Simulated assay, not measured.
Amino acid sequence: MGQPVIIQIENIFYPIIATVGVPANLVTIVILSRGIYGLSKCITRYLVAMAVADLLVLVFAVILYQINEAYFQYSILSYTPICSLNIALSFAFIDCSVWLTVAFTFDRFVAICCQKLRTKYCTEKTAAVVIAVVCSLAVLENVPIYFMFEPRKVIDNVPWFCYVKSGFYSSNMWGAFLWLETILTPFAPFILILLLNALTIRHIVLANRVRRGLRRNNKGENHNDAEMNNRRKSMILLLAISGSFILFWMITFISYMCALFTDAQFTETNYNDPFTIMELSGYMLRSLSCCINTFIYAVSQSKFRDELKNMIKRPLAAITCLFK
C-alpha cells in the first residue's frame, strides 16, 4: 500500500524548502551583516537574528528531523536521545524565530509611536540584549520537551525514533505545559503582533494627516516629504514581515486551539484524519515562513536587491573568465 497523500507531499515539500531556504537565509545573513544604507544598526541586528533563527529551524526541524525521518531512517539521528534533543532544539529555534518577530515589531512600534522612549530603546545595544534574552528564554522553555518522548521501537536494546509518551495527554503536568506552550507560541505572538501593528498603522495615518495639513498651509515648501517616505517604507517592511508570520502560522494556530479545546491529539498516525492533515499542513507552512523574509527584503529594499545581484554576478563573472 502506498504512502498517504499528505506524507507524499511532505517528502517532496521539505527537500525543496531546505534547498531554497538554507541558501536564501545564508545570503540574507551575509548581506545584512555588511549593512544596508537606510537601515539602522538596531533594525539590522533584529533582521540578522531572525535570519539566523530561521536558518536553524530549517537545519534542525526540516533537514535533521523531517528529511531524515523520510529518507534516512535508522541513522544516528533516529536514536531516541538524539531525536528527542533535535526536536527540543527545533521547538526552541522556532520559538526564537517567532519571538524575534514580536521583538522586531515592538521595536518598530516604539520607533514610530513613542518618540520619548525611542532614543533609549531603539539602539544596537538594546537590540543585542533583547535578542540574547529572547533566545535564552526560548531554549530554557523547551527543555521539558526533551523528556516528552519515548522510543517508538527498541531493537537489540537500542531505542529508536521518538513517540509522545502514552501518559502525555492524561497528565495534568504535561497538560499545563501544553497550555503554556500554546499561549507562548503562537497565541501571544498573534495577539501582540496584531495589536502592535494596529497601533503603529493608526499612529502613522494620524501623523501623515497632520503633516499633509501643515504642508498645505506652507505652499512654498517642497512636497517631497522625506519623513513621510521613511514612515511608509518602515510600515511596508514591518507589515510584510509580521503579515507573512500571521499568514503562514494561521493553520498551526488553529490546530493548537483545536488540540486544547477538543479531543484532537498531536502526532496521530491516522493520516486520513482531518486534524492530522491540518496539523501537518500547518507545519509545512510554518517551515515555509522561515525562507520568505529573504524575498520580502528583496522586494522592499532596493539596496538589498543590488547587493543580491552583485553576489550572483561575481561567481558568474569568475566562471566566464575561466572559459575565455
Rank of each mutant, 00 (worst) to 15 (best):
M173P: 00
H203M: 14
L238S: 04
A188H: 06
R209D: 12
S242V: 01
N272P: 01
G213M: 13
F261C: 11
F295V: 05
V158P: 02
M278R: 02
V164H: 03
W160V: 08
N222D: 15
N197C: 14
P159I: 02
W160G: 06
G220V: 07
S242C: 07
I296M: 10
T262V: 07
M284Q: 06
N230F: 05
Y169A: 11
M235I: 02
Y297K: 03
R232E: 12
L238M: 15
N217C: 14
T252N: 11
C291G: 09
M278H: 02
G175Q: 07
R211H: 07
F275N: 11
Y163M: 14
W249R: 11
R212G: 04
E181F: 11
L214F: 08
W179E: 10
W249N: 13
M250R: 04
F261H: 04
S234L: 09
N222V: 13
L192Q: 09
P159T: 03
S281R: 06
R216E: 14
S170D: 15
R211L: 09
L199Q: 04
M257Q: 06
I193L: 13
S242W: 06
W249S: 14
Y163F: 10
L184P: 00
L194N: 07
L260Q: 05
E268Q: 14
L237M: 12
K233C: 09
L239H: 05
P159Q: 09
W160R: 10
T267G: 04
G220P: 00
T262Y: 05
A188Q: 05
F168P: 01
G282S: 10
T276I: 04
S171D: 11
G243P: 01
F177I: 00
F248E: 03
K219R: 08
S171E: 10
A264Y: 06
T269G: 10
S166C: 09
L196K: 03
A176L: 08
R212H: 10
T267W: 15
Q265L: 14
D263N: 15
L192A: 12
L247F: 13
A298T: 01
F161M: 12
A298R: 02
G213K: 09
F295E: 12
L214E: 12
F248M: 13
K233G: 06
I254C: 13
I251C: 06
L285H: 03
A207R: 05
R231Q: 12
N222G: 06
I204F: 11
M173N: 09
I296W: 08
R216C: 14
I241E: 08
R231L: 15
W174E: 07
R286K: 13
S166H: 13
E268V: 06
Q265S: 11
T200N: 04
Q265V: 09
M257K: 04
K219P: 01
L280F: 04
K219N: 05
A259I: 00
Y163H: 15
F248N: 04
I183V: 09
I236E: 07
D263F: 09
L238C: 08
W179P: 01
G220H: 07
Y283T: 02
I193T: 01
W160L: 15
F275D: 08
R286S: 15
C258A: 14
I296K: 05
R215I: 07
N218H: 03
P159W: 03
L194R: 05
R216Q: 15
L206K: 08
S242K: 07
V210F: 06
L194I: 13
S255I: 03
A259C: 05
Y271V: 02
S281C: 13
